[in-house]
Design a binder for these strands. Structure first.
Lengths: 196, 196
DNA sequence: CTAAACCTACCTATTGGTAGGTAAGTGGCC
DNA sequence: GGCCACTTACCTACCAATAGGTAGGTTTAG
């Protein structure tokens, strides 16, 4: 009967961040509107403001979701008991999967490219997520060095930055060229550059 | 008075692509409007349509400008008679300068991040510019290999892709972190990864 | 006289956002 | 158990601002 009962309702909030995330990955932050989201979820756009008063709030909320997802992912990786090299490979695999046949890039990379048009608080949130990635990578590199898997050229933080930047760029260029091999070539060379 | 005589007029077309370029680099393609451009050039926005009927035309025109600029730059580099390693460094230096104190990124990287929202012809234009970069880099690497300056791990095209992706990502992340050292760390590690 | 290089004035669609509803579910109190 | 206050999760209907774009002038130079 017209309106669904509460029991029927989906978790609208997480649906919103999910679709907004997808749109940021495919089109960018400034290329989607509340109307686009409303049509996708089959609700009115005013309802979106109930969960996210402003688009900035939506952006920040969505990044916070990613922060939690990173927690989950990192713990799942830990449980697999991979060696550092395997963990690095899992990181690459994660992004290769995220690419979805060269249709998406990392949301953080997308937002970084529109930096000057982002509200300061959203910039902060993005930065926190970047840092999280780099801290995790640094940890993996540290362990890998101890295990003799990675070389010791420069600080691990610098190598982590190198990996992070290359992955972001590779995802973007690989989409522009419509060829995931591009991404794989880059990660192959990263492994080469890091090995002991 | 009021209105300037034709002799006083700047080259409005190139001013337009220049300012549009800057806005793409700082905010992204979807974050600036014809109105923004009009205010910056102190003309009416309708006049912009005289030069560029649509925003897509503007984007494409601007990329074609960059293609010509790349020609000029490459020839200027050739005249300097640098060795391949010096040419690669000049490439890095070019991007470090383009960063303008971590306020701008490469326009191609910016457009690549908004890929899904770009008109197909603009995507094509962007791709042509990416290819130009990579072909030039491949040439430099080829010569560098012959001169014993670079290693021969994989094809030069693959190494060129690696360099290109890393530079793009480094520019973006370095802006997000507001720290050009980030960019320099990445290029340092690229040199390391390429050396014979 | 013509054409280049603008202009004013307008258009429709869309933007993010607000005001004020309303149906359905929740918890407390007698 | 029944009533009532309250909250949740939406809704309709609007708003001013801005988007890209168009029609049809006007000024200036050659």
């Amino acid at each position: 009967m017209g309106r669904p009962t509460l029991a029927d309702r989906k978790d609208t909030r997480s649906e919103l961040t999910k679709v907004a995330l997808e749109m940021i990955q495919t089109k960018g932050y400034n290329a989607f509107s509340y109307n686009d989201l409303a049509e996708r979820l089959n609700i009115r756009k005013a309802s979106i403001h109930y969960y996210f008063p402003t688009k900035e709030d939506l952006g920040i909320g969505l990044i916070q979701d990613r922060l939690k997802a990173a927690d989950v992912w990192q713990k799942a990786i830990e449980d697999k008991n991979l060696d550092p090299q395997g963990q690095l490979q899992a990181y690459f695999d994660y992004f290769a999967g995220l690419s979805q046949n060269c249709t998406r890039i990392c949301p953080v990379g997308a937002l970084s490219s529109e930096w000057g048009s982002l509200p300061p608080k959203l910039q902060q949130a993005v930065n926190a997520l970047v840092k999280r990635h780099q801290v995790w990578l640094s940890g993996v590199l540290e362990k890998g060095r101890a295990a003799g898997q990675f070389n010791k050229k420069g600080a691990v933080e610098e190598q982590a930055q190198f990996i992070y930047a290359s992955v972001q760029g590779a995802l973007q260029t690989s989409r522009a060229q419509n060829n995931l091999d591009y991404f794989n070539q880059v990660t192959r060379q990263l492994r080469e550059a890091l090995k002991a």
